[in-house]
Design a binder for these strands. Sequence first.
DNA 1: GCCTGATCATTA
DNA 2: TAATGATCAGGC
Length: 222
Amino acid sequence: MRPTPLTEQELLSRAHELAGFTLDELAVQAGMITPPDLRRDKGWVGQLLEWHLGASAGSKPVPDFIELGIELKTIPISYTGKPLETTFVCVAPLMGLQGVTWENSHIRHKLARVLWVPVEGERDIPLGDRRVGSPLLWSPSADEEQRLRHDWEELMDMIVLGQVEAITARHGEVLQLRPKAANGKALTEAYGANGQIIKTRPRGFYLKTSFTAELLTRAFLL
DNA sequence: GCCTGATCATTA
DNA sequence: TAATGATCAGGC
């Protein structure tokens, strides 16, 4: 991959340089082969952008740009510029929750500073022909953080009370809790309704498309 | 299994 | 057609 950017400005300007290129063009530069589609390569676009931007973390549980504390997120965009998918943030802790607060939560740190890179995502555009858009370096506004915190506290309360299996994607205005695993057979431990420990599918926190649409729109209007 | 990168595919 | 629940690949 390219050298890791040393400053926020360097990272942002490098991201701006990618705007307008197709994924095929970026793949050639990276020495990668564009897959026919994303059915078996769901993370390919993210990995391609990681290469171009010099993300350092790889698959480690730390920010993509460790030194800068910045997380990289590619986001598939429709013809009208709206996100086509929810955005996975991180796995939800289901055990060992004593002392966990919004302030010290994994998700809050993950979302503290995010470099959003929109990429055309309509399925009728061949993968290699999709173009990269203009990047956005984002931190939650006070209002956005308040809404995130509200949903997070509601969801975590249910988890602590042993109600994880009663949570659906409909809970939360901006943040969802949904299964996150290789398949339905993956199981992890969680609190049960009667204080016992149960086995359940691992869950992840996802940002709803309406929320990420707002972010992109707000930045575009400014 | 957990974590990274996410999108797929079917339903409501 | 948007949203939900399910799933794919790779490294450790």
